[in-house]
């Protein structure tokens, strides 16, 4: 009887060991943690698109990926260390300040950083080279479309020479995009009527003081300006002048845009995130330029009395009718 019991115990241990070995052989599905640092609420659309694209790549929130989001500027300093402690697989950042703080926080760790949208990380001081980066970072830059966006305006309304540009330098992108715009305007022989404002009141005031020869407006990457786009659109409509922009906002009444599309950029960032999560080092992935899309708000164009040429409509990626 004792022998039987011993033998039974021995068999039990042996079979358990075999089962244990078999079980350990099964690959355990990884659960990813992604941090999102986005102090700009206007980019929510991009994040949504990013998450959707991630899901289509197989990263389903709550299933095999979870997001730790920091949405407010003042939360960054508070919550970022907590996020780093959790050793996320990747941190998705937006805006130059948000990206800078994140990059400082992850320094010394292997946590990769992916910026979803940055106007120009090179000029913004995030990286020192677009290809050979020292930091474990990559992302999508949106610079490069301002000149072309400006170029599209004469196509919509030939002969434009004076363009009103309200701006607040509340972002790095605002300065850089204005510089790019100025360069393009010079090439095209366009005169920029730059109105620097500090707040909404000043904007209102500037709008009310638009020069009489103004033939178009141009919206750059300024939070204040983009946040008050409705007022600007309203004024432009009143003046029957088109608005050009590199920031999208086509659905908010901007007549013609050429630049990154929030949805598409979100997808683009998601593709880079997928690469990183697949094992590619972020530092080795070249920074991509956002896909620039041509958008026409046909409805607004007609409203201000413009006839949009067919070839433009044919080339347009987005048409708001």
């Amino acid at each position: 009887m004792i022998l039987f019991k011993r033998t039974r115990t021995f068999f039990f241990i042996a079979i358990s060991a075999i089962l244990l070995i078999s079980c350990t052989n099964k690959a355990e599905e990884k659960n990813y943690l992604l941090g999102i640092v986005n102090p700009n609420p206007k980019l929510e659309k991009t994040i949504k698109s990013f998450k959707a694209a991630m899901a289509s790549n197989g990263y389903e929130e709550g299933k095999n990926i979870s997001y730790y989001s920091i949405f407010k500027q003042h939360d960054i300093d508070l919550k970022l260390p907590e996020l780093i402690k959790q050793n996320p697989d990747l941190i998705l950042t937006f805006t130059t300040p948000g990206t800078k703080k994140t990059l400082d926080a992850v320094r010394g760790t292997n946590i990769p950083v992916l910026f979803g949208i940055l106007y120009d990380p090179l000029e913004g001081g995030i990286i020192d080279d677009l290809v050979n980066k020292k930091e474990n970072i990559t992302g999508v830059k949106v610079a490069g479309s301002v000149q072309k966006a400006l170029e599209w305006l004469p196509g919509l309304k030939p002969g434009i020479k004076n363009v009103f540009v309200p701006i607040k330098f509340d972002t790095q992108a605002a300065r850089l995009s204005l510089a790019e715009l100025s360069s393009g305007a010079e090439k095209l022989g366009i005169n920029l009527q730059i109105a620097e404002v500090e707040d909404k009141a000043q904007l209102t005031s500037a709008l009310s003081a638009i020069p009489a020869n103004t033939e178009a407006m141009f919206i750059l990457n300024s939070i204040l300006i983009v946040s008050n786009i409705d007022e600007i659109v309203s004024k432009a409509t009143m003046l029957n002048i088109p608005i050009g922009s590199n920031t999208g906002q086509i659905d908010r009444g901007v007549t013609i845009t050429y630049g990154q599309d929030s949805e598409y950029t979100g997808k683009q960032a998601a593709r880079l995130a997928h690469k990183i999560l697949m094992g590619a080092p972020a530092s080795g992935i070249p920074i991509e330029t956002a896909h620039f899309k041509l958008g026409i708000n046909l409805k607004k164009a007609l409203e201000i009395g413009l006839t949009v040429p067919d070839n433009i409509l044919q080339m347009a990626d987005i048409v708001v009718r």
Binding site: K275, M278, G279, A280, P281, S283, G284, I285, P286
Partner: peptide, 8 residues
């Protein structure tokens, strides 16, 4: 290649 660093 999926890891562009090798390309670069």
């Amino acid at each position: 290649y999926r890891d562009p660093s090798l390309i670069l």
